[in-house]
């Protein structure tokens, strides 16, 4: 019983914390984000298995985590609202070449982040070459370049 309860508690806690922290918190933008991810997994690992190093405990924890993930994905499939709550919604940050400052402030993305995504994905160098920039659910910024001449 305890293995399942532990796994559910940790899963829900992490889900809540990362939804509250925002999409870009662990999007692995910088090297330090990756380090942070590793430290967090290290901290959680003990709570997840407790003092019980048995095979059955590990199996139950993995089974519970996988089961929760599958159940939530079924829920997301069935309900658009659940999908929004659990996985967020894309957010347009640049529309028709225009920066939407108030939205960018809210999700803590600045012009440099958008330009970085434009450089690395499309080799664009200026803001006016960007038609749309969208903060995706993964925390990445996707860029739609402006194809019009000039």
């Amino acid at each position: 019983m305890e293995s399942v309860v532990r796994a559910v508690a940790v899963y829900l806690f992490l889900l809540l914390v990362f939804r509250l922290a925002g999409q870009r918190t662990l999007a692995q933008i910088t090297t330090f984000d990756l380090v942070l991810l590793l430290i967090i997994s290290e901290a959680i690992q003990q709570a997840l298995i407790g003092n019980d190093n048995s095979m059955i405990n590990a199996a139950l924890v993995v089974l519970t985590l996988a089961g929760l993930n599958v159940s939530l994905s079924i829920l997301k499939q069935r309900s658009k609202q659940a999908e929004k709550v659990l996985e967020d919604v894309p957010l347009v940050l640049v529309a028709e070449g225009r920066l939407l400052r108030d939205r960018m402030d809210k999700v803590r993305v600045d012009e440099d982040d958008i330009l970085e995504a434009a450089r690395s994905n499309h080799g664009l160098e200026r803001l006016d070459q960007i038609r749309y920039a969208v903060l995706e659910r993964s925390g990445d910024i996707s860029i739609i370049p402006d194809r019009s001449p000039g």
């Binding site: 919604v89 894309p90 028709e96 739609i144």
Partner: peptide
């Protein structure tokens, strides 16, 4: 935007600003 008419129509991107507003408010509380 002088050449707006020469561009293809704007992309349809699923977004929900009212949802984001609510989410941001909840994040603040969090």
């Amino acid at each position: 935007q002088p050449a707006a008419s020469s561009k293809p129509p704007p992309a349809r991107i699923l977004e929900d600003l009212s949802f984001h507003r609510r989410l941001w408010a909840i994040q603040r509380i969090g």
